[in-house]
Simulated scan of single mutants.
Amino acid sequence: MIELKNITKTYGKGKNLSPALSGIDLKIEKGEIFGVIGHSGAGKSTLIRCINLLERPTSGEVWIDGVDMTKLNKARLQVRRRKIGMIFQHFNLLSSATVYENIAFPLRLVKTPERKIKEKVKELLALVGLENHANKYPAQLSGGQKQRVGIARSLASDPDVLLCDEATSALDPQTTNSILKLLVDINERFNLTIILITHEMHVIQSICDKVAVIHRGGIVEQGPVTDVFLKPQHEVTRDFILNESNNAELLNTSWTAPNVPNSLTVKVSFLGDKTYQSILSQTVRHTGVDFAILQGTISTLKNVPYGQLIVRFEGTEGDIKRTLDGLTAEGLDVEVIN
Rank of each mutant, 00 (worst) to 15 (best):
M69G: 06
S154E: 08
V220M: 11
N92G: 02
G144W: 03
A104E: 14
I24T: 06
D165N: 12
L183E: 11
K136N: 05
R56H: 14
T175D: 13
W63N: 10
N187W: 03
I310H: 08
E123W: 12
T237G: 04
I28P: 04
F291C: 02
G326C: 06
G315V: 09
Q295V: 02
G14F: 10
L93T: 04
T226M: 09
N303C: 01
N177Q: 14
S59H: 06
N191E: 10
I179L: 12
L242N: 12
M201L: 10
D319Q: 14
T198D: 05
T112D: 01
K5P: 03
H90K: 08
V36H: 06
T10H: 06
E29S: 10
A126E: 15
K302H: 11
I194F: 01
F270C: 04
S95Q: 14
R285C: 02
D172R: 04
I103A: 09
F190K: 13
E235M: 10
I194Y: 02
R56Y: 09
N135T: 04
P261Q: 09
Y100E: 13
V284N: 06
L196A: 08
N177M: 11
T70R: 14
Q233N: 11
W63T: 06
K120L: 05
N177I: 01
N52F: 05
F229N: 05
H90G: 09
I293L: 12
A212S: 11
K122D: 13
R238L: 13
T8L: 07
S154I: 05
L332K: 07
E166R: 09
K9N: 01
L109Y: 00
R148T: 07
T256N: 11
H202T: 14
Q282M: 01
L72A: 04
A170Q: 01
E188Y: 05
V67Y: 05
L125T: 05
Q205N: 14
A139P: 00
V260C: 08
I195G: 02
F270W: 12
T46Q: 03
G23W: 00
L93R: 12
R108Q: 15
V225H: 03
D333T: 15
K118W: 02
P113L: 08
L294H: 12
E119W: 00
K267C: 14
H39N: 08
L124A: 03
A248Y: 02
K136T: 01
T297S: 15
V121P: 07
Y11H: 07
S281R: 12
D325V: 13
H39K: 15
S96A: 14
V220D: 07
D319P: 06
Q205F: 10
L54E: 12
N6L: 03
K321M: 13
A167N: 01
T46F: 05
I207K: 08
